[in-house]
């Protein structure tokens, strides 16, 4: 049984062996197998091709395949390491590894930086921060005047941009996060510690040992 299933899995595009992924991430082999159960559900929700398309990602996050969101888009883009428009299983596991409670804090800080570096210039620029604040206001239906938004962005930049060159570099970001650790709170998903409990169906169907 394990052999047949293992062959089938290997035919999935982007499938990588759980032992390899476990060695490169904070996950155990069992947890990677459980993540594969989740991945199968997400990646076959709209198009049954074993790859997570942007609409499937949106559907999983918002229960709505058409709901675009700046931050969800950025996270999708960061997960899509190959930049081919889909998230493969290996990309999914490696990216989620950063969100594991045991992942290095430095990795979480770096991931958050890349998330905010909208135009991927290597810096978080003032205009990017303003764009994100405006996107959030739009998302939340909160109304703030242009002046208030400018003040919020200025104050934040005033503290984070210690060199005063109009952009936040990775070192400044690291320093800023150390003063405001809540900034990376969303970079930890407690669910990942209990992933095998969330997907218990895997436990009775595990085949790592037998196929090896």
């Amino acid at each position: 049984m394990g052999c047949v299933s293992s062959k089938r899995r290997k035919q999935e595009p982007g499938y990588e062996e759980p032992t390899v992924l476990a060695a490169e991430t904070p996950f155990t082999v069992s947890e990677v197998e459980a993540l594969h159960e989740l991945f199968k559900k997400l990646s076959n929700a709209i198009i049954a091709d074993g790859l997570i398309h942007r609409e499937e990602f949106q559907l999983a996050l918002f229960r709505n395949r058409n709901r675009r969101n700046l931050f969800a888009d950025r996270i999708f883009d960061l997960f899509d390491v190959k930049r081919n428009g889909v998230i493969e299983f290996g990309e999914f596991v490696r990216s989620l590894g950063v969100f594991h409670p045991n992942a290095p804090v430095a990795d979480k800080i770096a991931f958050a930086f890349r998330l905010y570096d909208l135009r991927q210039t290597g810096f978080i620029e003032r205009e990017e921060l303003k764009e994100m604040v405006l996107a959030l206001l739009h998302e939340s239906d909160l109304a703030l005047s242009e002046d208030v938004v400018e003040t919020i962005v200025d104050k934040t930049f005033g503290e984070a941009d210690t060199q005063g060159d109009g952009k936040i570099d990775p070192e400044e970001w690291k320093e800023f996060v150390s003063k405001h650790p809540s900034l990376i709170k969303n970079m930890t998903l407690p669910y990942l510690k209990d992933i095998t409990l969330a997907f218990p169906s895997f436990v009775v169907r595990s085949e790592v040992d037998e196929s090896d």
Binding site: A60, L61, L136, L189
Partner: peptide
């Protein structure tokens, strides 16, 4: 209290909260 734009974004954006990936699956 200092109004931190990044805290505002990270605490309020639904697109930033990946926990929904694990819920109701």
């Amino acid at each position: 209290k200092f109004f931190n734009a990044f805290e505002f974004i990270s605490s309020m954006s639904s697109g930033f909260d990946l926990s929904s990936l694990f819920e109701n699956k």
